[in-house]
């Protein structure tokens, strides 16, 4: 570590000060104040929102697990293909991210609606009739919109690339001679994976989990659009404090602060769970 800060670091330091440190300080200040000055009232009211906290963390956790379950095998498979396939796959994974977030979520609404694309497809192929016969129900469509499942789907769809990219980039960098060495020493493919690939890809998993979990917890709009807006998440709750009729930026800041503390605690626990070897990238 250099003792003196390099001259070239100064722009970065200024950037960080203005856009990271200052906002955090402001959030903390707001959280501990009201129109009339210092107060702890904002935190006293936090209990009211325990349900929202619980729901947000639960859905974010589910979305993260689903992303991991999809992202890890996809990363593994991609890394085994030729360079051409890898480039194309990478573009396909990145492509949706170049489109506007709201647009993507609106598309999902069109797909999941009661007379949306998916339900029309299910009617055409007779899946709904089959379902009715099997379970004795009388559905004309599957209610997919305005469910927590739809919210999780929205999160997974939006944040999956953030799981795939770090895992993929770790796996692709694994030295092939390590895998050969493991095979040479008597490991079959299961053991090569379990004892070499998996432990060495953990840093990628940790940063993938971080990059999916954090934005999932604080996500907003998805729950309003795909979840019907009746069971709001933390992101929506905070948004309401700043834009809604219940205008109260002090409370909004307090909720944001509590959420931040919980997220940081989660990440801290997780990084130590990974033996603290390679720290996941904190964003």
């Amino acid at each position: 570590m250099k003792r003196k800060l390099s001259l070239f670091a100064i722009p970065y330091v200024i950037w960080m000060a203005i856009f990271v440190v200052a906002p955090v300080i402001l959030v903390v200040l707001y959280a501990f104040s009201s129109k009339h000055g210092f107060t702890l009232d904002n935190f006293a009211r936090m209990g009211t929102y325990a349900v929202v906290f619980g729901r947000s963390f639960k859905l974010a956790l589910i979305a993260t697990v689903v992303c991991l379950a999809i992202g890890y095998p996809v990363s593994c498979m991609m890394s085994r293909e030729g360079p051409r396939f890898q480039r194309i796959a990478m573009v396909l994974i990145m492509l949706p991210m170049w489109m506007n977030f709201l647009l993507r979520t609106y598309s999902w609404m069109a797909i999941l609606e009661n007379n949306g694309l998916l339900n029309q497809l299910f009617q055409k192929i007779g899946l709904i009739d089959l379902w009715n016969q099997l379970f004795g129900t009388n559905l004309t469509f599957f209610p997919m919109m305005n469910t927590q499942g739809a919210v999780v789907l929205g999160m997974v769809y939006n944040y999956l690339p953030f799981m795939i990219l770090p895992i993929y980039s770790v796996i692709i960098k694994l030295d092939p001679s390590l895998l050969e060495a493991a095979r040479d020493l008597g490991a079959d493919s299961v053991n090569v994976f379990r004892r070499v690939i998996l432990p060495l890809s953990l840093p990628g998993v940790l940063s993938g989990v971080t990059m999916v979990f954090v934005p999932s917890v604080s996500t907003f709009a998805i729950s309003t659009m795909l979840g019907g807006g009746t069971r709001i998440l933390l992101g929506d709750l905070i948004e309401q404090q700043f834009t809604g009729g219940a205008y109260n930026p002090y409370l909004g800041a307090a909720i944001a602060l509590v959420m931040m503390v919980i997220v940081v605690l989660c990440m801290w626990v997780m990084n130590h769970f990974g033996e603290g070897e390679e720290q996941a990238v904190m964003l």
Partner: peptide, 10 residues
């Protein structure tokens, strides 16, 4: 058993 060029230690 093999000793690899760049050791390939885990």
């Amino acid at each position: 058993n093999t000793v690899f060029q760049k050791y390939a230690l885990f």
